[in-house]
Each structure stands twice: as structure tokens, then as C-alpha cells.
Design a binder for these strands. Structure first.
Ligand SMILES: [Mn+2]
Ligand SMILES: [Mn+2]
Ligand SMILES: [Zn+2]
Ligand SMILES: [Zn+2]
Lengths: 173, 173
DNA sequence: TGCGTTATTGCAACTCATTGCAGATAGGCG
DNA sequence: CGCCTATCTGCAATGAGTTGCAATAACGCA
């Protein structure tokens, strides 16, 4: 979807399920290792390593789980008040092409990012309490498998958002 | 989700699966009948029937299938150039509480409305060709049933958007 | 170390959507 | 028929996100 120049054109699709080089890079050493891994991958593709990109990656490395785009812009701005939102948005697009982040949509349609998800997953959101859970592996396998067999449709699992009411909210209300 | 005063507080939930009074109203007679049905329901709840609401309902009655919110604003503006977007958005919220429309989210997160859907349904979107299909009944039954049994989660089916690549796009490259 | 190419940034304009508030008006009631 | 009041509308400000373009700066290469 992003019209960003794609460093290694197969990377966008490949990074999703392939053993992820960023995963190991970030595993122990954290931010510096992730920076180095991203920097190298960018240069391989003729892309550039800039202070703005570095800042965002450092912010991402400090982030657990889900984060809204606006929060990321805000955290970048804490480090550097001169941060420009459109640069952050464009960098996120690029990092998604690389497989460093995945986005999904919250019930209101706004974007939310997941940093280095260990495996692709969909989400369950409760409209009543605002809770969010990852879809279990076997549940998403069934959804993906069903649509693959029936319609020949290849589901983008990380983009699956299922909204409703969780058990707790149904019982109490 | 909408903070709109809810005319008959059970209507929001009830209208989804219950035999829908608007369905019949609009069936043959079209716009005037739908207007009358909505007007009566509003007055029952102490809400008001206004020219702005009437205009939107007339536009909706001429609409088949899915429409983006921006398109609806545009069509209202064709009838009355003085149309105010926020009024249209608020009216759509109200009509969704009444069960006259359902919204879902396109792959980019933007809203799309379905007028008087005959039955609740989720959507399948192809990112490559932009195509959109309704989820088949048995497919959505399986998804809804699985999450109901496993997690006790009540899925809001009309809000389910599954994004990916359709068979045709996968085959042609 | 410096140059030139070209990817990237900053910026401004734009789209879509939401919200709070003050003034307008629908419509129940006398 | 006209008043009163609570609901709605219009409006303006705000927030989220995208896009085109000119200026900047990364970095490969001499
Ligand atoms: Mn929604
Ligand atoms: Mn998306
Ligand atoms: Zn809940
Ligand atoms: Zn397609």
C-alpha cells in the first residue's frame, strides 16, 4: 500500500513470516542493535540513514506491545521538539515494508502499531471496556484456512480487527 | 459508541437481528415510507424530525450497497449546498442507533455505510484490486461461533473487515 | 576530502472526522 | 395559535493522516 521506494522488493512480503533478522538484532542488545540492523538494510537498498529515522527507531525499541501513531509522534517530539509528523508517518510506512512494525486498526479505524511482533496475529477489541487481545493461533488459523480454501483469499492476518463485547462485559452489563 | 441520545434505548442492539421495521417501510414505497418510519420512531423517543435529517434519508434511500461517508456528504450537498458535514455525521450516528444503516471500515480505516442491510454481514477487501465482497453466511457463522464458544466474545459482525488478496489477484501476479 | 546524485525532509495545503458551544427551531402543551 | 424548552444545527477549533513540491542532506564515488 505504501508508495515508499521498497529497498528489497521482496522484503515487504517476505519479512512477515520469514525468520526475522530484526527480531534477533533487537532481542538482547535492544535499540543500538536494531538501529544497526535497520541502517544496514536501508543502505543495501540505496536508502538513507537519517537522524529522524534513528530517533523513531529508538522510540520504537523502548515500546512494548501496541502504540498509536499519535503516541509515537508525541514520544519523538519529546526527544526532539522539531519532529515533523509527516516524517514519522512516512518512516513508519517504510519500517512496515521492512517488517519492523505492523499496524492494525482500532475499532474507530485509527491506526495502532505493534513493534516486532513475534508472530503475525489479529486482534479482538471490546467496545465496552476498551480491552484488546491477540487472536489465538488456532483461532486465526481457522479463519485464514477457511477463507483460503473457500474463496482463494489470502488474509492479511495482522490487519484483522474483530470488534465486539468481551465475556466480562457481557456478564456484568 | 455514539453519545447520541438514544430514542428507545433497546433499539440500538435490538434492531440488528430483530425483524426490521424500516426494512418493510422502505421495501416498496421507498423514500417517503422510510422517512415516515424514521420520523415516527424519532418522535416516539422525543427526538426531532428536521429538514437536514429528511435530506439525508432521501439520499440514503437512493443508495444501493456501500457508500463512503464523504460521498453521502457530497450527495446531500448536491441537494442543498448549505449542508454541514458535522450534521451529516451526527445524523448517521443516530440512524445507526436506529438500525437504518451499518458502518464498516475499509482497509484504510475510513468508514463506509451500508443502507438497510438485509442481514448483518462482514466484509472481505482485496488490497490489490480494491474489490469488496460480503462474507458468506456460513463463513461468518463459523467465525462468530468460534469466538463465542472459545472466548465468550460477542462479535459485531457488521464491523468485521478482513483484508488481503483475492484469488484473481493472487493468480495474476 | 569534496562533489553530485537522488532520497528524504520540512512545510503547507488538504481531506476526513470529532467535539463544544451558542443560537435556532421542532413540536408538546396550554 | 403561540410559548417554552430541550433537541438540533451551524460554526469554528482541533486532531489524525496524506500528498506534492522545493530545499536539504546522505553517502557513493572520484
Ligand atoms: Mn467503526
Ligand atoms: Mn491499514
Ligand atoms: Zn470488555
Ligand atoms: Zn483483488
Amino acid at each position: 500500500m505504501s508508495s515508499y521506494p521498497d529497498p528489497t522488493s521482496s522484503a515487504a512480503a517476505g519479512s512477515v513470516l520469514a525468520p526475522d533478522p530484526f527480531q534477533q538484532a533487537a532481542g538482547e542488545a535492544g535499540s543500538p542493535a536494531l538501529c544497526a540492523a535497520v541502517r544496514d538494510r536501508l543502505r543495501e537498498g540505496g536508502l538513507r540513514w537519517t537522524p529522524q529515522r534513528r530517533a523513531l527507531i529508538e522510540v520504537l525499541a523502548e515500546t512494548d506491545g501496541h502504540v498509536t501513531t499519535a503516541e509515537l509522534v508525541e514520544r519523538c517530539r519529546e526527544r526532539d521538539p522539531a519532529t515533523i509528523p509527516s516524517t514519522v508517518y512516512r518512516t513508519l510506512d517504510m519500517l512496515e515494508d521492512l517488517g519492523v512494525v505492523r499496524h492494525c486498526h482500532r475499532p474507530d479505524g485509527r491506526e495502532e502499531y505493534h513493534v516486532l511482533p513475534e508472530h503475525e496475529h489479529g486482534h479482538l477489541y471490546c467496545r465496552a471496556c476498551g480491552g484488546c487481545w491477540e487472536l489465538e493461533r488456532d483461532e486465526s488459523d481457522r479463519i485464514v484456512g477457511m477463507l483460503e480454501r473457500g474463496q482463494g483469499f489470502a488474509v492479511d492476518l495482522s490487519h484483522v480487527t474483530i470488534v465486539g463485547r468481551c465475556r466480562a462485559c457481557r456478564e456484568t452489563g
